[in-house]
């Protein structure tokens, strides 16, 4: 567990999404929704990169900053070697570290940004993550037009990017007060179509560890929101807490960005996933809800499955991680 005594603030946020995401229940909170899933580019990967650039441009514009004013760009995606993020960083020309925590990158990047702010190395840092459905699916699963049947536990990789601009403390803004860097947990799940089941133990581990070291109860939070466990993964997480005697009131505190992302639309099965899933919800909806005062203290727990298509073919189980940040609003 890391404490941030200087309470770095989330100065501004941006969320950009693709055409399918216009069906999202969080649609109205996004800054921009593209009608073209490739953002006018020739390849899906270039479109992925363009989406990241657009989200970074928006977050800088909101804070009235130029690229030169930003000290660090901390981000990641799910494509091999994170080329979309790397190529976006080439255009942004901001000191850049690429981070890979799979779908937990939205939070791991904010943790690093907050640390850099805490030690005085950064005035402003952009942190976040992105994913583009087509680019991820073709890499991890099948070609887009291949007719495969997916089980009810399958999730839909979102096309979305979410970024937060982390700066010095401002009492009028949501601020990062503590964080827990997750361990890598593996309970032996092997199916790449059951990410929620693979990741739930990692979320459980990180949440219990954070609460224990902070000497807090679940109900000290207005909301504990996991990243992309999906409907079934969230159910499993709640069952794990119920097993350790959590009350109904306490279980109500838990929500999951992926489970809610597409509402009750059955075409998306268990819900949304992808690095952009938690990022585009945390850095739009959650930030805005905190600014309006609806939430005073939230724990954002982004979950990531650390597999590759090759590790699955080689018969490996799916190790997972979850990173948490505690955000308060005065």
């Amino acid at each position: 567990m890391i404490l941030f005594p200087s309470k770095p603030s989330i100065v501004a946020c941006s969320a950009v999404a693709g055409p399918v995401e216009s069906k999202s229940v969080f649609y109205s909170y996004f800054d921009s929704v593209s009608e073209d899933e490739r953002w006018g580019q020739k390849t899906n990967e270039q479109g992925h990169s363009k989406m990241i650039q657009e989200a970074c441009d928006i977050v800088m514009k909101k804070a009235d900053l130029k690229n030169l004013d930003v000290d660090f760009f901390l981000s990641g995606d799910l494509v091999n070697q994170m080329t979309p993020t790397n190529f976006a960083a080439r255009e942004l020309a901001i000191s850049f570290i690429g981070l890979f925590s799979a779908c937990a990158t939205s939070v791991s990047s904010v943790i690093i940004a907050s640390l850099l702010t805490e030690v005085g190395a950064s005035r402003f840092a952009i942190a976040g993550a992105a994913s583009q459905h087509n680019a991820i699916e073709r890499q991890f699963r099948y070609p887009l037009d291949y007719g495969a049947q997916k089980p009810a536990t399958a999730q839909w990789t979102v096309t979305a990017a979410g970024y937060a601009l982390i700066g010095k403390h401002d009492p009028k803004l949501p601020s990062v007060v503590a964080a827990t860097v997750g361990k890598v947990v593996d309970y032996g799940e092997v199916s790449p179509f059951h990410m929620g089941g693979a990741m739930a133990p990692a979320a459980y581990d990180t949440i219990t560890s954070h609460l224990k070291k902070r000497h807090q109860k679940i109900t000290d939070y207005d909301l504990i929101m996991t990243g992309d466990l999906g409907k079934i993964g969230l159910k499993i997480l709640k069952a794990m807490f119920a097993q350790t005697d959590a009350t109904q009131e306490e279980l109500e505190v838990f929500r999951d960005a992926g489970a809610e992302y597409y509402g009750e639309d059955e075409a998306f099965q268990s819900g949304a996933s992808g690095a952009g899933c938690s990022a585009s919800v945390y850095f739009s909806y959650i930030e805005q809800q905190m600014k309006t005062g609806r939430y005073k203290r939230v724990l954002l727990v982004a979950t990531g499955a650390l597999l590759s298509p090759m590790s699955f073919q080689q018969g490996e189980t799916i190790p997972c991680t979850a990173h948490a940040i505690e955000i308060t609003m005065e």
Binding site: K23, E37, R138, L144, W156
Partner: peptide, 9 residues
């Protein structure tokens, strides 16, 4: 002729 498209339904 064609280009892959990611549509849920």
């Amino acid at each position: 002729i064609f280009k892959p498209k990611g549509k849920a339904n």
